[in-house]
Design a protein around this nucleic acid. Sequence first.
DNA 1: TCCTTAATTCGCCATATAGCGAATTATAAC
DNA 2: GTTATAATTCGCTATATGGCGAATTAAGGA
Lengths: 125, 125
Amino acid sequence: MREFMDISKALSDENRVRVMMVLQDRELCVCQLIEVLGLAPSTVSKHMSILRQARLVEARKAGRWIHYRRNDSEADEHIAEALAWLDESLQGDRQVIVDRKRLKSILKMDPETLCCRQASRVKAN
Amino acid sequence: MREFMDISKALSDENRVRVMMVLQDRELCVCQLIEVLGLAPSTVSKHMSILRQARLVEARKAGRWIHYRRNDSEADEHIAEALAWLDESLQGDRQVIVDRKRLKSILKMDPETLCCRQASRVKAN
DNA sequence: TCCTTAATTCGCCATATAGCGAATTATAAC
DNA sequence: GTTATAATTCGCTATATGGCGAATTAAGGA
């Protein structure tokens, strides 16, 4: 029950759902998620800890950055089933489309002006 | 998004999840659900309206009684997927087992002392 | 009609949650 | 070491949510 409630509570907030949907294609660091959601860093951080607690996402530390990605592990059947429900339910959702567009422009933004400058540096190396 | 959030919020409360699980096998009226959960009638009624709003359950009126059952309609794919996730996640869950036992004893209880006296009268007819 | 009873609605309270800004931590650059 | 920056933690506030009891509604039975 605890496991199920952790997941369902994690998915009961729209902003956390938006995070899960922009993480569908690729991993993102917190500062990128902040830009997509338009929320304060502390708020996004809290959301990510809740998603992580529910094991819906995993974190990968790289220098100062922490990259979050979906937990796509086949071992977690309940997670996989929840994600399948999530993805099918929000197929073509307006908010999801808007967020993905927003993400695209964020990824294209001038690295000097954007928070995640390292992204370009890593790419440059 | 609205539809998804309605469902995920409905499933983000443990007592509502317990309701969904005791409704797995059979439909029940509110007074039976009150006995299983051990909550006030007004509270249970509110929970049922939230589950109904999310289309996770359907209501059938019979005299003074309102029988709730799961929405098992094949047409609602998102509901079906959520229910599949719910059932698999809570397979063998301790709380669910306790609630089902409790339900069994409630169904066996003396109809005179139990709230749902009509249940036996209907059966007697 | 009047009473009983299943269920809901309403009003209220306590707790949980989401949000922010400030302070803190951790890591890399200078 | 010092500074800068990504991220988290902490303290706080506003709102949302779950709970109850009382009042209300709806439907049978006396």
